[in-house]
Design a protein around this nucleic acid. Structure first.
Ligand code: SF4
Ligand code: SF4
Lengths: 133, 133
DNA sequence: GTAATTAAAGACTTCATGAATCCATGATAA
DNA sequence: TTATCATGGATTCATGAAGTCTTTAATTAC
């Protein structure tokens, strides 16, 4: 049970976007270079973030990605859900209805974690990467 | 990000073991039949639970598995850790030290979930499967 | 003591998914 | 209208989950 590498990339990319907001957009090439990862792969993660409405993309010269308006509201949970999806982390084939304690308990545990991640906003990451490379 | 099928099996097996505790032990064959899964595969999960000290095994005729002493203390987290391991669900290759906010936040979120699962004991599952098949 | 029963362990196969690359297409600004 | 940049699909590769088979070891019943 692990978050995918893609989530790692997405969180770090958001970190850099927060650091430069709301200035010039960063291209996937710039971001990939900063993170030290493949740009074509990172590109897919950024596209997911765009579709989730967390960042905006602009084609053409001097284009790239920047945070959406109201970016202060973006939470860790938003980023994680955008990449990992929102499926429950426990799903048994059968469905014995709402009286099933196993599902109730594991689902509630997951909810606890999500509440915490929902209250942590990515603007806290501002300045996190200063001097790291 | 999902719990493995093996965790599902283990939780259900514990459910049946709780239902019969502390009577006659259940063999892997009996458990596999109740759960409707392969016995050789389920056997591996049960062995993990034994090594984690959650249940006891007895070879020979009329052998099988039964809960350990102090089984009332066994939590959901115990079962999950026995099967999934205790690795953190977020691990970046690099390690920028303890001042890394990303790791701090995700790790703390995981801790929130684990605390909840730690306080949920499997004895709550007693009688959960009555009439389900 | 022998045979039947049961758990434990390892090798092996199969399959799904994450991780990554390549290439073609589409949009936009200079 | 050309250079720049994002988007999308197809494809490959590696990894780990899921499951099977077979052998060995332990314990009880007779
Ligand atoms: S008891 Fe709950 S977890 Fe188990 S099979 Fe039924 S619905 Fe699924
Ligand atoms: S900033 Fe934190 S999460 Fe990112 S690479 Fe460094 S240690 Fe890992």
């Amino acid at each position: 049970m692990k978050y995918s590498q893609a989530t790692d990339y997405a969180l770090h990319a958001m970190c850099y976007l927060v650091a430069t907001a709301p200035d010039n957009p960063l291209s996937v090439q710039q971001l990939a270079e900063k993170l030290g990862v493949s740009q074509t792969y990172l590109s897919k993660m950024l596209t997911k973030l765009v579709k989730a409405g967390l960042i905006q993309s602009m084609s053409g010269a001097n284009g790239g990605y920047r945070l959406r308006r109201n970016w202060e509201d973006i939470s860790f949970l938003d980023v994680i859900h955008a990449i990992e999806g929102t499926a429950s982390l426990f799903e048994c084939g059968l469905d014995h209805g709402s009286e099933c304690l196993i599902q109730q308990i594991v689902t509630e545990a997951e909810h606890q974690m999500e509440q915490y991640l929902k209250n942590k906003k990515i603007h806290e990451l501002a300045g996190q990467f200063m001097g790291m490379d």
